[in-house]
Design a protein around this nucleic acid. Structure first.
Length: 877
RNA sequence: GCGGACGUGGUGGAACCGGUAGACACACAGGACUUAAAAUCCUGAGGCCGCAAGGCCGUGCGGGUUCGAGUCCCGCCGUCCGCACCA
């Protein structure tokens, strides 16, 4: 029968329609079945899907389809992280309303995603910018405010003095506003913030239970939370040197044991003491200003040298009232961490020693190694300006001498906790965190309005539940910078809900991380009239497998963990669901070669479609099609607009089909690593698709001889059956473990075996048909359209998407004869093919008789023989 | 600087608990079919020596543990990622 090539575009369109019409992927809460919630990070509707999306959603779809076939009730939803700055930029630059821009983008990206053939329940689609979503967010936020989880906090914002607008960090480039170019100022502003720091300890402890999260992500979150134990110590300030309102200076230290090595104190430029001293000292004021200015970019910090300014203030050492220590303002002390003040112990801290040497401050060694010559070495190094921060023994430390640093720590803490300074203990133990509270106020239009009203009489008044949602005014203007809500003529003017006097709405909107911190909860009951539905959350949560990029390792995932706890406090979520994500998988990027015009600097990048290749493999060269001039093939990098190394998923789907793109991104590279997109790889994937189709087409024409399984199988037929069932077992295991590249390799092997199988022999037609059916079923999660087409061609009238996962015949997974490697002194010398159940004694005897073994032993006495059943024999001579 | 991951053929990678290293794919070479090409099919291939049989070497480098190490331990080297003056 004449074989037609598999027509991917036609087939894919057809099967997508069938799935839609039969509502195959519609999900209902059904507590009689085990559930599986598979979730990929929802996209930002930027306009077009990219290869990263293709990879992300393919990975999730394979798992979702597999679990469905395994009998799970699968929740696999999709939505849109639809608020954000880009929509407002589009409005500003192109005069399109943010809503129009966003909803248009959603429509086109949804069409693209549908072309991928994902097993998504589109009835559950949500867009965070839609009032039907954010009304619930506003309800919860009000509940959280009522529970004291949110508070008003004065914090710094980037202020553009020309555009009169607040800038996001990404809009500040080299300390200047991205549009105006004006030097950005830091301004204090009252903002709403979540008291996430109250949960620092709990969020840290919770990490230990997340054993299905990558170690890497847990470590990153742990560092971000940054717990450290130390001592708060209040130092009396010499009244002759300090302003009246500053009688003392409180510092935080993790090393109170090194207190006798103190040679200076340092405070942050924004510390109250620095500020009051600067009032009377213009030079100090200038220094503080300089420090503030360089605080903006990480690159500056990296190269900045440690600078200080002696305030003239002297602090009195808490363990020796006769000892006075100078107080500096220093550019490396952070106001946001600890108390914004430190004491410097140069001998034990590299940063402090640099500082001390620069300003001629004493360097007193206080911890040194116990034994020589290490001690002498350490002392020498300290003398040369290299701090010693190891463990050892205390010296030069009065009553601490001879103690270990650990004991000295305890001794200092015990003593200072007892001592009093103006009636209160000098020191207190304190656990400190790097984690800061989560400020959620954004001075933007395209975000969820914070539903409160500011009243001159009543203060801050929550918008009554009956008035929710507070929606965005559609007639806002975007032609000038600044917050459109703030300058809208009428929107913010309302009557106070309490006293009915004129009042104003909050014009700040929420950080979009709030939207994404609970969308996966909303998916469990997207049409509920309340934010959540207890029955649905109880059944569906936690998310069984979450898949997304590593770039969200900290903020999104930490905020989501926090938000689940906050929702627990307000009763919107079961407290047992404090960890809402059971397993996390972080995928690698899709990367591609870069191309640029040869010999031109700065580089002029070229799209892959603008390039013509000559030669093949390692020696291929590129020319620019339009000009015929040579192009340089550059490094392999993440696909990006700036480097133009983009491949449009639409082009691939149009030319090869979605299955081909899916198969490619699953092949070769393990999903957690980067995958290199190559044209050769895509062609290879396409070849495989055609090959499968040919095999299925051939097999479909073999007449079926009854339903009965033959009683006799030729050796070849048996071998094929074993390959099929072993592949079934292996592919199942590898999908469960998300080792899709290994599963793909197994499917190639089965296909190769099937293609090579003879068509005659006892039971062969049965074996071929059986193996083909298994192959198609195993391919179904990965290439669903091709599999449906093959399934139909094989005479089925059902959908493969509705078919259960096949069961492997355990008897076929075990071989009767096995190959045993025989080693002599650990080197492989021979192979033995033996019955599986051969005794160890017989195995040993047969190994010792082998010619190659006898030769290798070379007459030496055999000391012992290691026999590992069913694996190896090692003769030691 | 701190933290983490990784290092296997020409390339992407496989190798479960320490048990035949290099599955599978890409690229390459040779062949078949064809007027020709495409498509398809077959064959080959870690390195070195050898006509071959076969031998030796081989998982970044150097040690160690073990009958046996890509896998475990110690020390280096390199690459990538994250955080970054955190007291």
């Amino acid at each position: 029968m004449a074989t037609e090539r598999y027509n991917a575009p036609a087939s894919e369109k057809h099967w997508q329609q069938v799935w839609d019409q039969r509502e195959v992927f519609k999900t209902r809460t059904d507590t009689s079945k085990p559930k599986c919630y598979v979730l990929e990070m929802f996209p930002y509707p930027s306009g077009r899907i990219h290869m990263g999306h293709v990879r992300n959603y393919t990975l999730g779809d394979v798992l979702a389809r597999y679990k469905r076939a395994k009998g799970f009730n699968v929740l696999h939803p999709m939505g849109w992280d639809a608020f954000g700055l880009a929509a407002e930029n589009a409005a500003l630059e192109r005069g399109i309303h943010p809503a129009t821009w966003t909803y248009d983008n959603i429509a086109s990206m949804k069409a693209q995603l549908k072309q991928m053939g994902l097993s998504i329940d589109w009835d559950r689609e949500i867009a965070t910018c839609h009032p039907s979503y954010y009304v619930h967010q506003q309800r919860m936020i009000l509940d959280m405010m009522a529970k004291g989880l949110i508070y008003r906090k004065s914090s710094k914002v980037n202020w553009d003095p020309v555009d009169h607008t607040v800038l996001a960090n990404e809009q500040v480039i080299d300390g200047k506003g991205w549009r105006s170019g004006a030097i950005v100022e830091q301004r204090e502003r009252l903002q709403w913030a979540f008291k996430i720091t109250d949960y620092a300890e709990d969020l840290l402890a919770g990490l230990r239970t997340l054993d299905k999260w990558p170690e890497k992500v847990r470590v990153m979150q742990e560092n971000w939370i940054g717990r450290s134990e130390g001592l708060l110590i209040r130092w009396k300030l010499d009244p002759e040197t300090s302003p009246a309102q500053h009688a003392e200076l409180e510092i935080f230290t993790t090393r109170p044991d090194t207190l006798f090595g103190a040679s200076f104190m340092a405070v942050a430029p924004d510390h109250p003491l620095a500020k009051s001293m600067a009032e009377k000292n213009p030079e100090l004021a200038t220094f503080c200003d300089e420090c503030r200015r360089m605080g903006t970019s990480a690159a500056d910090l990296e190269t900045a040298e440690k600078k200080g300014f002696d305030t003239g203030v002297r602090a009195i050492h808490p363990l020796d009232p006769t000892w006075k220590v100078p107080v500096f303002v220093a550019n490396f002390v952070l106001m946001e961490y600890g108390t914004g003040a430190i004491f410097g112990c140069p001998s034990g801290d590299q940063r402090d020693i640099q500082f001390a040497r620069k300003y001629n401050l004493p360097v007193i060694p206080v911890v040194v190694p116990v034994d020589e010559p290490a001690r002498a070495q350490a002392l020498n190094k300290i003398h040369e300006g290299i701090a010693f921060d190891g463990d050892g023994v205390m010296i030069n430390s009065h009553f601490l001498d001879g103690m270990t640093p650990k004991r000295a720590y305890a001794a200092v803490a015990a003593r200072l906790e007892e001592e009093k300074l103006s009636g209160a203990p000098v020191a207190a133990r304190k656990v400190n965190f790097k984690l800061r509270d989560w400020g959620i106020s954004r001075q933007r239009y395209w975000g969820c309005p914070i539903p409160v009203v500011h009243c001159g009489t009543c203060g801050i008044v929550p918008v009554p539940a009956s008035d929710l949602p507070v929606t965005l005014p559609e007639d806002a203007t975007f032609d000038v910078p600044g917050n459109p809500l703030d300058r809208h003529p009428t929107w913010k003017h309302v009557a106070c809900p309490t006293c009915r006097k004129p009042a104003v709405r909050e014009t700040d909107t929420m950080d979009t991380f709030v939207d994404s911190s609970w969308y996966f909860v909303r998916f469990t009951a997207p049409h509920a009239k309340t934010p959540t539905d207890a029955a649905a959350t109880n059944y569906w949560l936690p998310v069984d497998q979450y898949i997304g990029g590593i770039e969200h390792a900290i903020l999104h995932l930490l905020y989501s963990r926090y938000f689940a706890r906050a929702m627990g406090v307000t009763g919107h979520l079961q407290k047992s669901l404090a960890e809402p994500i059971e397993a996390l998988f972080t995928q690698g990027m899709v990367v591609h070669e870069t191309y640029r015009r040869a010999g031109i600097d700065p580089p002029q990048w070229l799209l892959p479609t603008e390039i013509h290749f000559e030669g093949e493999g390692d020696t291929h060269t590129a020319t620019e099609i339009a000009t015929g001039k040579p192009a340089t093939i550059g490094s392999i990098e993440k696909m990006s607009k700036s480097k133009k190394n983009l491949v449009d998923p639409d082009d691939i789907i149009a030319n090869y089909g979605a299955d081909c793109a899916r198969w490619f991104v699953l092949s070769d590279s393990p999903p957690e690593r980067d995958v290199i997109w190559t044209e050769d790889g895509v062609k290879g994937a396409n070849r495989f698709i055609q090959r499968v189709w040919r095999i299925v087409d051939d097999v479909a024409d073999i007449p079926i001889q009854g339903d009965e399984m033959p009683s006799i199988f030729s050796p070849d037929a048996l071998a094929l059956r074993k390959t099929a069932h072993k592949t079934l077992h292996g592919v199942s295991q590898n999908i469960e473990g998300l080792r899709f590249n290994v599963a793909v390799a197994g499917l190639y092997e089965l296909t190769n075996a099937l293609a090579a199988a003879s068509k005659s022999g006892d039971g062969m037609s049965f074996a071929v048909r059986e193996a083909t059916i298994i192959l198609v079923q195993l391919l179904a999660p990965m290439m669903p359209h091709l599999s449906e087409q093959c399934w139909e061609r094989l005479g089925n009238h059902t959908l493969i998407a509705d078919s259960p996962w096949p069961l492997a015949d355990v008897a076929l997974l075990i071989d009767d004869t096995i190959t045993i490697a025989v080693q002599v002194n650990g080197k492989r010398r021979a192979e033995l093919i033996v019955p599986r159940d051969l005794s160890q004694e017989d195995l040993q005897a047969r190994a010792l008789l082998l010619d190659t073994v006898v030769k290798a032993v070379d007459g030496k006495p055999v000391k012992k023989v290691i026999v590992v059943p069913q694996r190896i024999v090692n003769v030691v001579a």
